[in-house]
Nucleic acid binder design. Structure first.
Length: 151
DNA sequence: GCCAACGTTGGC
DNA sequence: GCCAACGTTGGC
């Protein structure tokens, strides 16, 4: 089993939206490295930290779990979607997503400043300068440290 | 709103 | 294949 961090902008999809919906297709990833991680390296049962980006403050908001196999991202075929990709076809999709199950919301948001300051989270990708990847691998230790900070 | 960091595009 | 220009992300 692997552990991941998934970024979302709470203005468009927050941990509360996620809690309300219960499960969601994690669409809209449009970066090849992030896509490859979602498509090739995720597996059902993997655990994810939901991270609020471009927020006040930004930080870790809760936990989810990967459900099922990779899925063609339906937004790439929708001309009305901001994620529409004219190079993609139904037969040859370019972008993939996963269904993610809501597990829980943290008792408090663990702000980025706190993630950066925690010695047990040394080396965590989201704290690195300029790291824009929206899907990031986490070590088991880092994952459980964040969970314990949020419990 | 600023700007640093990074990814992508496209000319050559 | 190099690299400058440009667009985007995302913290502050």
């Amino acid at each position: 089993m692997r552990y991941w961090l998934l970024k979302t902008e709470p203005e468009s999809f927050s941990i509360d939206d996620f809690a309300k919906e219960g499960e969601t297709l994690w669409t809209g990833v449009r970066n090849y490295q992030a896509r490859n991680l979602m498509r090739d390296d995720m597996a059902p049962g993997d655990k994810v930290i939901i991270y609020h980006s471009s927020a006040n403050p930004s930080g870790a908001a809760g936990v989810g779990e990967i459900l099922g196999d990779k899925v063609s991202d339906p937004t790439q075929l929708d001309p009305k979607s901001p994620y529409f990709d004219e190079k993609a076809t139904k037969a040859k999709p370019v972008w993939f997503c996963r269904k993610v199950l809501f597990k829980r919301k943290f008792k408090r948001l663990i702000a980025l400043a706190e993630l950066k300051a925690d010695p047990r989270l040394k080396g965590i990708p989201v704290a690195a300068t300029g790291n824009r990847l929206s899907v990031q691998p986490l070590t088991k230790e880092h994952f459980f440290r964040i969970v314990s900070l949020g419990s």
